[in-house]
Amino acid sequence: MLTIYLKKLFQFSRIIFSLFSSQYALMLEYRAEITLWAVSGLLPLIMLALWTGIENPLVNYLELNYLKRYFISAFIVRQFTAVWVMITFEEDHLDGKLSPYLLQPITPFWRYVTSHLAEQFTRIPIVVIMLIIIFSIIPYSFWLPSLSSLIFGIIAIMLAFWVRFLLHWIFCMCCFYNDRASAIERLLLIPYLFLSGLVAPLETFPEIIKKIAYITPYPYIMSFPARLLSGQDVSLFLGFTGLIGWFILLFSISIITWKIAIRHYSAMGA
């Protein structure tokens, strides 16, 4: 019995791996585009410039060095948690490309996941080059995170990507009901910008708003990994519980919504 399951699991992971490598080959063709996407994620660095320029007692309290490390970490986290599934999903749906995908013996979900993961792989050298540029401009902000915080940070970034991806995937299902559902993505972007710690470290937030932010998944997918990477004292237990909890919750919701929405699907001409 166990061997059958293991065999199935092995087969499945082989499929995922070949999907991933084909998507990776595709993504490599679009290096120029991906570089531009990477450049468009500069917001944390703009915020860094603003925060360091302000005559604010809070800034002294937070220490300039910490701010620099925090925002550079936030920049890295943002690069590897980019999610655009709603836009491609809507496009595929409108062009009728979704129908053949649905006929394949594997759910389209994995196609989108692997394309995102492949894009992240393509990004690695681009982000390294950008980091070299950043550190050559502000050399004294350079730091090396300890091995443990680096490992935990990478795991946290991966989990954060999954949480954000699942969140967007659930809202993709709206495409079955309206042909401009990707507009919802703009709404999802707002709490991501202002509650995740992308524009300001969460420590500067007033208590009430901090509490509200921690009800949403956003601080876990941005502030937590960024603080980990910047070498701050963070509660690993709380952060990872938040990430894993949201992952399980969103994963179960996504399975249910997919089952409901797919029944609603009628291809072009049906």
């Binding site: 709404l187 707002i190 202002f194 524009v199």
Partner: peptide, 27 residues
């Protein structure tokens, strides 16, 4: 969608400004 995203964005920007101006600092 447009109105919600507008309100959200403006609220967020004002909130960020508010964070900058905490404790009577100036930008």
């Amino acid at each position: 969608v447009e109105i919600i995203s507008l309100i959200g964005n403006i609220a967020g920007t004002i909130f960020t400004l508010f964070l900058f101006y905490q404790q009577g600092s100036n930008v």
